[in-house]
């Protein structure tokens, strides 16, 4: 059965920025090794010395809580002291999702997109809210703990990427739907007109464009606005909403990237620390030398 490194628990449970975690485990590890050597020099067996060194240097739960309180970001310390860490995460995420969803609905309905079917608008709203919730979870985690573990980071990024793709897809779907609804009625008369009425202008049956009215000679003839521009405008609004959501999701994550890259480097060094410590552990964690000295099996 593989032995877990004694500092693995410290690394796992300490919720502080990765660089702090790395510093602490390196500091404790160096002290454990040096203390073990010193205790061996004073006559203890290697395993006795190892156990004593670990007992003395490896932080227990209380020490971890003290270290966490010392090294967590200021906001996290404040929230922790008030007992609001979990509530702050839930409230922050809910607030971000609600605000983003509300803004998306207002933006879409306010810009004349109600022709777009509900099966596009509401999923798009939900996707935008989910993008904001996902991003805010990462931000709040970093603000409170200064720590976004690799597994959680990968999960949040995968979700963010999926939501970005969903936003673009829904935007495109909505735009295609608007195009289909608008242009489909125009096609038959446009094609049929030259054959049925020779020498006369084609009859416009589109509900979106009024035919030129016969009125007073002083009245300015209405400017003929092709329906295509109005339709294209609606299509662009829907597609743009999806695209804007995607850009928001991508750029929001991009804003976190420098911090995440720094953390990633520290995480790599932590992983390397434990990988290199394995052979040492295999030698140090056994209890056999004591038993062998005493003639025990």
């Amino acid at each position: 059965m593989p032995h877990d490194h004694p500092l693995k628990r410290v690394e796992r449970e300490l919720k502080v920025p990765p660089q702090r975690r790395l510093d602490l485990i390196e500091e404790v590890d160096a002290d454990v090794r040096a203390l073990q050597v010193e205790l061996e020099r004073r006559g203890k067996t290697p395993s006795q010395a190892r156990r004593a060194a670990l007992r003395q240097a490896v932080p227990d739960d209380q020490a971890l809580a003290d270290l966490e309180a010392r090294h967590a970001p200021r906001l996290g310390r404040w929230a922790g002291a008030a007992g609001w860490v979990d509530r702050a995460v839930v409230l922050g995420v809910a607030l971000a999702a609600t605000s983003a969803g509300f803004i998306a609905v207002i933006a879409m309905y306010g810009s004349g997109v109600p022709d777009v079917p509900a099966f596009v608008i509401w999923p798009l709203t939900v996707v935008i809210a989910a993008l904001a919730a996902n991003l805010s979870r990462a931000v709040i985690q970093l603000l409170l703990h200064g720590d976004l573990r690799p597994r959680q980071r990968r999960l949040l990024w995968a979700r963010q990427a999926g939501l970005v793709v969903a936003a673009v897809t829904l935007g495109a779907l909505g735009a295609a739907w608007v195009g289909r609804v608008t242009f489909a009625p125009l096609e038959p008369p446009m094609i049929a007109a030259p054959e049925s009425t020779v020498g006369e202008p084609p009859v416009r049956e589109s509900p979106m464009v009024e035919p030129p009215r016969q009125g007073s000679p002083f009245e300015q003839p209405p400017v003929w606005e092709p329906p295509v521009w109005e339709a294209v405008g609606r299509m662009a609004t829907v597609a743009g909403t999806g695209l804007a959501a995607a850009v928001f999701g991508l750029f929001g994550w991009l804003a976190l990237t420098p911090r995440l890259l720094t953390d990633e480097e520290a995480e790599h060094r932590i992983a390397r620390f434990f990988a290199q410590a394995r052979p040492h552990l295999a030698l140090a964690s056994e209890t056999s030398p004591d038993h062998q000295r005493k003639g025990e099996p």
Partner: peptide, 24 residues
């Protein structure tokens, strides 16, 4: 570790830091 050992030695074992309490 030297601080922890020194405290223990110089106080005749009356005080000692255990379980990583030294680091905070």
């Amino acid at each position: 570790y030297q601080i922890a050992l020194s405290v223990e030695e110089r106080t005749g074992g009356a005080f000692s830091f255990q379980h990583g309490t030294l680091y905070p």
